[in-house]
Amino acid sequence: MKVFDLEFSTDHYYIKRSRVVEQIPFNNRTFYAKFERISEPLTPLLFQQHLNKQYTIAVPLVKNGFTDYLVLEYKGEEYLRFSHLVKHLFHTMDITKFYIYQGKDEEKIQVFIHVMHLTLEEAEKQLTEISDRLKQRLTKRWKTLPSTQLPEAYNIVTLPYNEI
């Protein structure tokens, strides 16, 4: 399914519920998931309902231990500064294939970096390098995905709402 400039091929998606739908034990921790897995392909109608904020839809980032996107999600007052800083940083790092979107709120920015079939460990290594460079200029108010520290049902990303 194509979402703006992003391409997701998945046989399932996740829909956010108002309650905890699953407790997930992982690495001696318990995660409380509010996203319910739906074992069907995402349809254009569901995506439209997501854009209309009727549902919050997420898609998995990891398939068979590999990912095609690295994601930075920033939420804070300096979202415009974050966006400009990311563009500058990526230029200096020769990262050219990235997309910046607005999340559900105006202050939420989602940055998708297109990569070619990286393992979860390689993805986390690249994200750590990017995050460390960003921390030199900005207070850390972002998260990176995917992560080896999260269970599969948490290595998901909500679909963006608007292009920036």
Rank of each mutant, 00 (worst) to 15 (best):
R141W: 07
H12R: 14
R37A: 13
H114T: 02
N28E: 12
D11C: 03
N28F: 06
T92Q: 15
L72I: 04
G103N: 02
Y79E: 09
P60C: 10
V86Y: 06
T43V: 06
T144V: 15
E78P: 03
Q126P: 05
T67H: 07
A153G: 15
I130C: 08
H50A: 04
L6M: 01
E78W: 03
L120P: 00
L61V: 01
V86I: 11
V111T: 05
E152M: 14
Y69W: 06
L134T: 07
D132K: 07
T158E: 12
K16S: 08
L138F: 15
D68E: 06
E163W: 13
K16V: 04
H117N: 07
L145H: 04
V86N: 06
L51Q: 00
S131N: 08
A123Y: 11
I15D: 07
F82N: 03
P151M: 10
D94P: 07
L70P: 00
H88D: 15
V62C: 01
Y69S: 01
N28V: 04
V111E: 06
R29H: 12
Q136G: 12
N28C: 08
K75C: 04
L51A: 02
S18W: 03
Y101H: 01
F26H: 14
R29D: 07
E7P: 04
E122H: 11
I57D: 04
L61F: 11
H84G: 09
D132C: 07
R141T: 06
K125H: 13
I57S: 08
E129F: 05
R137L: 14
P25H: 07
Q149E: 14
K16T: 03
D105Y: 04
Q126H: 14
D105R: 11
P160L: 00
H50P: 03
P60D: 10
V111D: 01
R17G: 08
V86Q: 09
E40N: 12
Q102Y: 01
K104P: 03
L45F: 10
K34D: 05
P160R: 00
F8M: 02
Y79V: 04
T10F: 11
L127M: 14
T30Y: 13
M1Q: 02
H91Q: 10
Q126L: 12
F47T: 03
D5C: 05
E36Q: 06
E122K: 11
Q149H: 13
V62Y: 05
F90Q: 08
E106K: 15
H84L: 14
F112I: 02
A123D: 06
P44D: 11
V59W: 13
S147F: 13
Q110W: 00
K108W: 00
R137N: 14
E121I: 15
E73K: 05
T10E: 10
K87R: 14
Y99F: 07
P160Y: 00
Q110C: 08
E121V: 09
V111N: 10
Y74R: 09
K140M: 11
Y69V: 00
Q23I: 01
A153C: 13
K53R: 10
R17M: 13
I15E: 11
